[in-house]
Design a protein around this nucleic acid. Structure first.
Lengths: 149, 149
DNA sequence: TTTGAAATATGCAAAAT
DNA sequence: ATTTTGCATATTTCAAA
């Protein structure tokens, strides 16, 4: 399931994590190989499941969704949302669900327009388990690239 | 700080959240405007801070970092990592820090090669505050686009 | 916002290392 | 076996309307 990555692969991964829209030409200049080689390497990384996608990151506050929260769930057994994430298909406010070890079965990140929308969502999530929520004040480190190390 | 988004802007945002590498040509076909208009709209969204970046998503397990955890921090007052995130500049294993309301001051997502590396990191984080960690078993919903609603 | 022409970038096949 | 070169196609950018 794992593939060997050389220094060219890592350089491409780091560049694409920083800016997913870099052209193969620009990537070629940065990692000192030819554009067709970049294209071939990138496709290999995609096919091997190393690169799982390319996403524009949107600032929720800038699009009118300033109320963000993390909700810790203790689900009621068989209705656990980690086992049936499709239960949340009609909740676009839910942007991430992570399943955890321990007594908390998952953490759910929600992005909403207002406190009252958050409240409605907590009622909905409360149907699947015990919830405990905390609002996101800021994101001191919003993300970091996975590095060669 | 907020700008008005029409249906073309939202269509572009949704398309670029799904696939950040779509060409302006392809975007133009999908949203039924000309390529230069797409380029101009996208630049406007970038400059307005709506789009904060474009990132390739890398599967940590596929690159030899299968041990992922969420660490809840109760920092020791003035050394709080939410106030001084630069304290973690030399910890590439830390990929996200979110500051929260409540008695937990932040949640830190860490991506490591092994349990022993995770342990070393927890010792390090323990220097800044009380830690409580849970390992990530899976990510039933890894992300969702922010939608027009 | 669109059109059209110039500059760039991409993808394929063949050759080279 | 992988990488590069060269060429044909496609895309991006800029100017003008």
């Amino acid at each position: 399931m794992s593939i060997e990555l050389d220094s060219v692969d890592w350089a491409l991964l780091e560049a694409l994590q920083e800016d997913a829209r870099l052209s193969y030409n620009e990537l070629a200049r940065r990692v000192h190989v030819s554009p067709p080689t970049v294209a071939q390497r990138v496709r290999r990384l995609e096919n091997a499941g190393v690169i799982t996608g390319y996403r524009a990151t949107v600032d929720p506050t800038a699009v009118g969704r300033p109320v963000i929260a993390l909700v810790r769930m203790k689900c009621y057994g068989p209705r656990c949302i980690t086992v049936h994430p499709e239960l949340l298909d009609d909740c676009p406010e839910v942007v991430e669900v992570v399943r955890l070890t321990g007594d908390i079965c998952s953490v759910v990140k929600v992005v909403t327009t207002s406190i009252s929308e958050l409240e409605r969502l907590l009622v909905r999530l409360g149907g699947y388990g015990e919830t405990s929520s905390a609002m996101v004040l800021s994101t001191p480190i919003p993300w970091r690239p996975v590095q060669a190390g």
